[in-house]
Design a protein around this nucleic acid. Structure first.
Lengths: 241, 241
DNA sequence: ATCGTGCTGTGATCCAGATCACCCCTGCAC
DNA sequence: GTGCAGGGGTGATCTGGATCACAGCACGAT
C-alpha cells in the first residue's frame, strides 16, 4: 500500500481527462451528471474479483483505469480467458440486461478504479435515456465481436503457434512507448503468466512455454521480464503459413 | 415452387399470432405500427444467403418463420456454425449497431419469412424508442450468451462425443410432436448434414459419422432419415463422464 | 542463509482425432 | 435405363499437443 498515494482516484466524471475517448463517458453534461449520481467509485488492488461467474447480478462496473480479465470456467475446473477489458468498458452488462447470473468472472489485472452502478438504477436510467441505450448496444456489440474472434481462433483449428502468434500480434497494437528501440522491434508489456496465456489460446502451459521458446530461438521475439520485443513481420508469417 | 401456396405469408405484424411470444414483436400497438411501416416482408427458399460475412451492413432481418444458420469462415475456408436462429430473432444487429461489415453469414435452413429493415431507418427508430433499444440489448445479450456457450464448448477440450452429446441435448429441448413414441425417447427433426454438424462442434465429418455410429450402437439414439429418437438420460451420462 | 511458493523450461510417453482413400447408398437429370 | 453428384460409412495412418514428471530460478518471508 506504499504506492497508494501514487494512484490518483477520479471522482468527478465531468472533469475526467479521458471523458471524450470513452464510449460510455462521452455523454452530454446533464446525462453524465445524472449517471454519475448513481455511481460509487472505488479502487481495487490487482487480483480483485469484481464479479464471479454464476453470481446473481448486482450491477455494472465501468472500468476507469487499469485492466481486467474476463474468464469463464468449465465444470471440470478449466478456465478460458475471454478477453482483457480496457479502461472505458462496461462490465457485467449481459447479466444486468438479461437478469441472469454473471456469465464470466472479472478479475483486475492491475490496481484499477471502477465505478459501480446498481442494476435497478442502471436499468431505469437506460430506459429513460435512449442515448445511453445505444451505448449499451455498442458495448454489447463489442462483447459479441470479441467472442466471435475467440470462436474463430479456437474453432478453426489453427495450430497453437498460429493462435499464439495471432494473440501477440493483437497485443502489439498497443505498443509500449520506449525511447530507444531498434526499428522493426515493437516493445510491449505482458503481465500475464504463461498459464494465463495458455487459457487465452486454449492450450496447456507447457505448450505455451515450448512455443515461446521456439519463437525466441527463431528470432520472432525477445523476452526480458515483462517486456517483450516483437518482430511483427516474422510473426505475421507464422499466421499465414 | 409447387408448395408456395402452402406457405402463408404474414403481412401484418399487429395481427400476427406469435406477436406476444417474440421479444421483438411484443411491443405496444403504436410502436409496432411504426416499426412495421419501415419493413419489407419476403419469403426466402431454403438455402438463401440473407447476408454474407464481410459485406457492408444494409439492415436487419427479423426472422418470422423458419430457421437460419449463422456461420463464420476462416481464412483457410473452414467454417464454423455459431448458432441456429429461431423465429423472432433479429439478425445482423451487431453490424448495424457498430456500422461494421457483417460478422457472419446467415443462410436459411428452411423456407423462411423475414422482415427487412434498412439500417438508417432502424437506427433512427431505436434512438427514438428507448423501449426498442432495450429489446436490441436483449437480443445482443442473447448473441453473447450463445457465443460464450460455444467458446466453453470449443475451448474446454471436451472430447468430440461429449460436445456432440451436448449439442443433441440442446436440440432435444425442442422435441417433435409425434403421436406414438416410446417413453424416454424424444423425437427430434435434424435437417443438418453431418458436414454441418461437424462445423458446429468443430470437428471433421468422419468423426461425426463414427461418433453417431457409436451412439446408435450403444442405444443412445436412433436415426431414421431426418428424425432422430433421443435417449436423454444416456446422452446426459456421456456429458458428465 | 534457508525455506517455501509461484513461474518457467524440457524430456518422455501416449492417444484422440485429423486426414487420406476408398466404397456404398439414394435420388435426380437426361 | 445410365450417369452422376451429394451424403454417409469405415479402415489405415500419422501427428500435434495433452499429460506426467521433474528441475531450475527468482523473490519474499522468516
Amino acid at each position: 500500500m506504499a504506492n497508494k498515494a501514487a494512484f490518483r482516484i477520479m471522482e468527478n466524471c465531468l472533469t475526467c481527462e479521458f471523458r471524450e475517448d470513452r464510449l460510455f463517458c462521452n455523454l452530454p453534461d446533464d446525462v453524465l451528471e445524472a449517471l454519475q449520481s448513481l455511481k460509487t467509485s472505488s479502487v481495487y488492488p490487482k487480483g480483485t474479483l469484481l464479479c464471479l461467474e454464476g453470481q446473481a447480478p448486482r450491477g455494472i462496473y465501468v472500468l476507469c483505469t487499469g485492466k481486467a480479465k474476463l474468464s469463464t470456467t468449465s465444470a471440470e475446473g478449466k478456465s478460458i480467458i475471454l478477453r482483457i477489458a480496457e479502461p472505458g468498458e462496461v462490465l457485467g452488462l449481459t447479466a444486468i440486461v438479461s437478469n441472469q447470473p454473471y456469465e464470466c468472472t472479472v478479475e483486475t489485472l492491475e490496481t484499477s478504479q471502477a465505478n459501480f452502478i446498481p442494476q435497478r438504477d442502471f436499468l431505469r436510467f437506460i430506459q429513460e435515456n435512449a442515448e445511453v441505450g445505444m451505448k449499451v448496444a455498442q458495448q454489447l456489440t463489442h462483447n459479441c465481436h470479441c467472442a466471435y474472434q475467440e470462436i474463430r481462433s479456437l474453432g478453426h483449428s489453427n495450430s497453437v503457434p498460429e493462435k499464439l502468434a495471432k494473440l501477440i500480434l493483437v497485443w502489439s497494437e498497443h505498443p509500449l512507448a520506449l525511447s530507444h528501440t531498434k526499428p522493426g522491434e515493437i516493445p510491449i508489456r505482458v503481465t500475464l503468466t504463461q498459464e494465463e496465456i495458455a487459457q487465452f489460446v486454449g492450450t496447456s502451459r507447457e505448450t505455451v512455454s515450448r512455443t515461446l521458446g521456439d519463437f525466441k530461438r527463431k528470432g520472432f521475439l525477445k523476452i526480458k521480464g515483462a517486456t517483450w520485443w516483437i518482430n511483427k513481420p516474422a510473426l505475421e508469417n507464422v499466421v499465414t503459413t
